[in-house]
Design a protein around this nucleic acid. Sequence first.
DNA 1: TTCATAGTTCGATCGTAACCGAAGCATCGC
DNA 2: GCGATGCTTCGGTTACGATCGAACTATGAA
Lengths: 228, 228
Amino acid sequence: MKEGPDIAQIGALIGDPARANMLAALTGGRALTATELAGVGGITVQTASTHLAKLEAGGLLAQRKQGRHRYFTLADEAVARLIESMMGFAAGRGHLRHQPGPKEPALRKARICYDHLAGDYGVRMLDSLIASGAIEAVGEGLALTEKGESDLECIGIDVSDLRSSRRPLCRSCLDWSERRAHLAGSLGKALLSSFLDKGWARRTAESRSIRFSPEGDRQFLKLFPVDP
Amino acid sequence: MKEGPDIAQIGALIGDPARANMLAALTGGRALTATELAGVGGITVQTASTHLAKLEAGGLLAQRKQGRHRYFTLADEAVARLIESMMGFAAGRGHLRHQPGPKEPALRKARICYDHLAGDYGVRMLDSLIASGAIEAVGEGLALTEKGESDLECIGIDVSDLRSSRRPLCRSCLDWSERRAHLAGSLGKALLSSFLDKGWARRTAESRSIRFSPEGDRQFLKLFPVDP
DNA sequence: TTCATAGTTCGATCGTAACCGAAGCATCGC
DNA sequence: GCGATGCTTCGGTTACGATCGAACTATGAA
């Protein structure tokens, strides 16, 4: 008894529905204000404030003051991975929300996961990259091949630039909706950024979902085909 | 709001100290009775019973009746991974227990993580396997090389037998005490089993720690050297 | 300065869940 | 059959924490 680190603390932090909703919303990657987070939690600002203070004290959240606003983000990528992995686990056990709601299908199709693409499109992209030989799946990990490096340079991704960062280039991240892996890491981030830059897709206002334009949709599906 | 799977439920399940202690104890891999779990949780059997019922309803635990005993185990390896990953996260944030206690050093040296070796010795073993070229680290994943396969056959591990199982051969598992990876998967399990079979080490009664005999210690350190 | 907006702190209320004693089943050994 | 052990269910108590109204601080706009 009393062995090891205290998982009860962080479990309790995530265990409150209001806090869980806020954390899930912040998995969208963008910084949100206390008032916005109160909205997603379905509570008043006062209550949200105490929740946010607790989450920050627990090391899950970081805070940035800007004028009279306070922007909250997840403390780092480790928190995002923890949340997504818990989502994957929960989805596997059938711990789903009671009302699927109208936004569900859009979320399942394409959504943002911290800073990269997830959902059906995210899984398709990784599948296609593996099928074309751009990425190799070794064990549980992912590795970019030489072919992949040149392929990506063609569509405007500066791989050598990405390599210079300390962050791993390829990471696989388990998708809660698809129950399959999609591409995370700095490469995953760069790819999503390029889609947004090219105007193929854009982030929606209050949700984690990503909306592809008709043209962007065509380009994406052409660039990442699924073999028959 | 109301997006995705419900992480609050499992967060709340893990969020209670008594339940967290029971789950951590069960990460030791062996099945425990309700009374034993009440002990590790520091609560009476009645209370433990309700906790265990909740954990089982939540899909975290499985139960097996045997005579008048009820043996509880983690539902599957996914639960074990979730718990260990939360431990790693918690350790990284400094969410440590208040009293380190006398058993801490033993736990840090060598302990069981579901069914494989973790702690200092677990990390050393993987490091050594990689240094000798038996295992390759590719991206985040691990892959057994041909050399590794023959090396392992020499010490009595039937790799082809392990391959026939559906479970992945090599997995990397993040260690909460060392903050580095150790070897999981069916190969990790087989290696630990062989140590126990050879009498190099044995599991302790009430703890997750593993005790090496003086002779076993020498053999282990010889078999898995760290290069200078 | 004054007003408005964003956020925190205080105080009090309220619900829920953890907890244990006691009673109730089930299984084993005899 | 009997008592002993392992565990669950019931009932009632208690304590903690989530919640919000109201008051307070800070920044920005006019």
